[in-house]
Every structure is written in C-alpha cells, then in structure tokens.
C-alpha cells in the first residue's frame, strides 16, 4: 500500500493535471486551440519579468489568506470570515501608515502589527461566540464580513479622509514597495512576498513545533479527547480564530502597504479571503501546501488575463480552478483508482 504522505502529494498533482486536461477539453469543445490558450496563460504569468512580478504580487496575499483558512481548519474550525479580516487588516495597516510619522524600523513593523491585531480582533468575535455560546462560527464569520466591509468604507469616507473614496498613500517609512524590484520588473512587486513566506513558516512552526500547536491540532481531531486530556478546548478555539484572523489581517496589510499603498472604498468583497479557502483546500491545509496552492492560484488568475489574446475567455480559468478543487475533494475516488491499478499491476 502507498503511504498516506505519498497520497498527500500525488492527489493534488493529479487533480491539477486532470483540471488542466478538463480545461483543454472545454476549449476544444468551444473551438479554441488549447495549446495556444495555455501558452497565452503561461506567457501572461511568466512571459517576462513584469508578468512574473505581477504574479508574485497576486500570490502574496493568497499565501496569507490560505494560511489563515488552513490554520483554522486544522483546529476543526471553518473561518469563512477571512474576507472581513483582510479588510480590517488592510484598513489598520493603511491607517497606521498614513497617520503616523516614524522611522521605518518602527513604522513598518507597527503597521503590519496593527493589521495582525485588527484581523485577530475580527477573528476573536466568532471564536469567542463559538466557545462561549456554541454559536455556529460560519454564520458569525459571514456577518463579520459584511460588518467589516461597511465599517471600513465608512471609516475611509468620514474618519481617515474627508468624504474621499480612497485614502492617501501610506508614508514611505511604512511602505513595502521597493525601488529596485520595481525597476527590475516594472511591476508592483514588493517585499510583502517575504513576509508571506515568514507567515507560512510561522504557521508550520506554531502547529508542528510548539505545545500550543499540538493542543490546537488535538482539539481539531477530537474535542472530547482533548478535554479529557486536560486541555482547555474553549480557549484553544478562541486562540485559533485569533491567530487565523491575524494571518488574514496581514494579508490585508500586503495589499495596503505593498500592492496598492492605499485603501479605497469597496462596493463588494475582494475575494482574497474566499479564494484563500480554495488555496488552503488545495494545499491540504498545510503551510507548504498553502504556499504552493497560492502559487498555482495566483499564476492561473494572472495568466488568465492574457488568455483573451488567444481568443479564450479568461473565465475558463475559474472553471479549471473549480474542477481542480473538485478533484482534490474527491480524492477518495482517485485513491481508489490508484490502488486498483496498483493491484492489477502485481
């Protein structure tokens, strides 16, 4: 028999391949050339340094939102509120970036910390209500998303600015933008990428290398057993949601301090959080998996923008992504096929 570790690697890879094949079949059915379609996608993501830069810009918040969702999943919680936590993190980071005047060594960490705290607070609410009143975390998180959306808009309009639709740019001392990366790639590439990787590392470290992380995972596996072993289940639920929210908040900071340098009024969601669910699922809820999932996701999304140059509507990529997630979800059937083919081979 195959080891489960083997499956954890093989099944996502097979799913991605199957998803891409399905996308090719759809292109054929609608009379497009799948090779030129995928070539356009590849060029749109890595064709030159500019596109590569933009792809990494897209990947950066995905890593963190994916990590946020994955972290909560590992504790048995579904944080569908990453979207709202991204919003408040974005706002907090920009607010600190605009309002304060400090040397960079203080300002930038403070702005990122503010984002983490804001996201953590936003995550605290569903976590606390779940632990204290057994309220379903999904519903509270969904509500918190809307509250974040409207509150952030109102704060931008009437607190940070005077009825403007976007804030000023953050001070240079709080910006993640880098001159030489910009000159190298002409894209909006910024140092946030490194922070995202650090975030993924932190998730791995907390969950795998600390006692608290062990407790969190244990609660995710079996609440009753954890309670019996003397762990405080309620406190771990809250903690997990706060940490998850903090990751999501930093994802917002990447947008605010890196990609855009400002925050504007939003009429709807950015989907960074919802896409983070897909990223986490694709990565099997692990840190490394989330990084890889974010890369795949970001590449597909940015590359898709170039697909119309081959005549293919860019929405094809959304279908491919959906199918990949389906295949990952249906790992049972892939496993079944793998095992059967192995038996027959003997």
């Amino acid at each position: 028999m195959f080891a489960s570790r083997f499956y954890n690697i093989v099944i996502p890879v097979i799913s991605v391949i199957l998803g891409l094949i399905a996308g090719a079949i759809i292109m054929l059915l609608f009379g497009y050339n799948p090779i030129s379609g995928y070539a356009a996608l590849w060029n749109g993501a890595f064709g030159d340094l500019y596109f590569t830069g933009e792809t990494i810009v897209k990947v950066t918040p995905y890593i963190l939102s994916g990590v946020a969702v994955a972290f909560a999943f590992r504790t048995g919680l579904f944080n569908i509120g990453v979207e709202g936590q991204v919003f408040v993190g974005w706002l907090a980071a920009v607010w600190v970036g605009v309002a304060l005047d400090l040397p960079m060594i203080l300002h930038l960490p403070l702005a990122i910390l503010a984002a983490a705290v804001a996201g953590g607070l936003w995550g605290f609410v569903p976590g606390f209500l779940k632990a204290k009143f057994r309220v379903h975390e999904v519903i509270v998180s969904i509500m918190m998303n809307y509250i974040a959306l409207y509150t952030c808009n109102a704060i931008i309009r009437s607190v940070i600015t005077d009825n403007e639709d976007k804030t000023e740019n953050v001070a240079e001392s709080a910006s993640l933008a880098s001159e030489w990366l910009t000159q190298l790639t002409f894209s909006r590439l910024h140092y946030g990428f490194l922070i995202a990787l650090i975030g993924a590392f932190l998730m791995w470290f907390i969950l795998e290398k600390t006692t608290k992380g062990y407790e969190l995972r244990s609660v995710g596996f079996n609440q009753n057993a954890s309670k019996y072993a003397g762990m405080n289940v309620d406190r771990n639920i809250v903690l997990s949601f706060v940490i998850s929210g903090a990751f999501a908040g930093v994802a917002g900071a990447m947008q605010g301090l890196g990609t855009f340098q400002f925050m504007s009024v939003n009429s709807g969601f950015t989907n960074i959080g919802f896409d983070g669910i897909a990223v986490a699922l694709l990565g099997g809820n692990t840190a490394l998996g989330s990084v890889l999932g974010a890369f795949l996701f970001g590449t597909l999304k940015v590359g898709a923008l170039n697909m119309p140059s081959a005549g293919v509507p860019k929405e094809l990529v959304d279908i491919v992504v959906a199918l990949i997630i389906f295949f990952v979800a249906s790992s049972y059937i892939i496993r079944w096929f793998l095992q059967r083919s192995k038996k027959e081979g003997k």
């Binding site: 699922l281 959304d318 959906a322 199918l323 997630i325 389906f326 979800a329 049972y332």
Partner: peptide
C-alpha cells in the same frame, strides 16, 4: 458517491457556477 469533503465540494461548486456562467 465520491465521499468528498462536503465543504470543499461546496466551495468548488461556487467557483464552478461563476466560472461556467461568466464563460
């Protein structure tokens, strides 16, 4: 039938609907 994680499958359904319809 495929014993998929139902949350994952539901999320995929959301992406698929949007992808197919906009395509």
């Amino acid at each position: 039938s495929f014993r998929a994680d139902q949350v994952v499958s539901g999320v995929a359904l959301n992406f698929l609907a949007l992808g197919v319809s906009l395509f």
